[in-house]
Simulated assay, not measured.
Amino acid sequence: MDSIDLRILSALQEDGRLSNQDLADRVGLSPSPCLRRVRALEKDGVIARYTAIVSPEKVGLPLTVFVQIRLARHDGDTVRAFEDRILGMDEVLSCHLMTGDSDYLLNIVTENLQSYERFMRDKLHAIPGIGAIETSFAFGVIKDSRRLPIHPAS
Rank of each mutant, 00 (worst) to 15 (best):
M1Y: 05
R7C: 00
R7H: 01
R7S: 05
S10C: 13
Q13G: 03
Q13M: 15
D15F: 13
D15K: 15
R17Y: 07
S19Q: 10
N20I: 13
D25V: 05
R26V: 02
G28P: 12
G28E: 11
S30L: 03
S30G: 10
S30H: 02
R37M: 10
R37C: 08
K43Q: 10
D44R: 14
D44W: 03
D44I: 09
D44H: 10
V46D: 09
A48E: 04
T51W: 12
A52C: 06
A52V: 13
P56K: 10
P56A: 07
P56L: 10
K58P: 07
V59D: 02
G60C: 15
P62A: 06
P62Q: 05
L63F: 02
V65N: 11
Q68T: 13
I69D: 12
R70D: 14
R70S: 02
L71V: 08
T78S: 07
D84Q: 14
D84K: 13
D84F: 06
R85T: 04
R85G: 01
I86W: 03
L87N: 09
G88Q: 10
M89G: 10
M89A: 11
E91S: 04
V92F: 08
S94L: 06
S94R: 11
C95K: 07
H96L: 15
H96A: 13
L97W: 15
M98Q: 15
M98T: 11
T99W: 14
G100N: 02
D103L: 09
Y104G: 15
Y104L: 15
I108T: 00
V109N: 09
T110E: 07
E111A: 02
E111K: 01
N112V: 04
D122E: 15
L124H: 08
I127L: 02
G131K: 03
I133H: 01
T135K: 02
G140I: 00
D144V: 02
D144F: 08
D144C: 07
S145R: 03
R146S: 11
R146I: 11
R147M: 13
L148Q: 12
L148A: 12
P149Q: 01
I150K: 04
P152W: 04
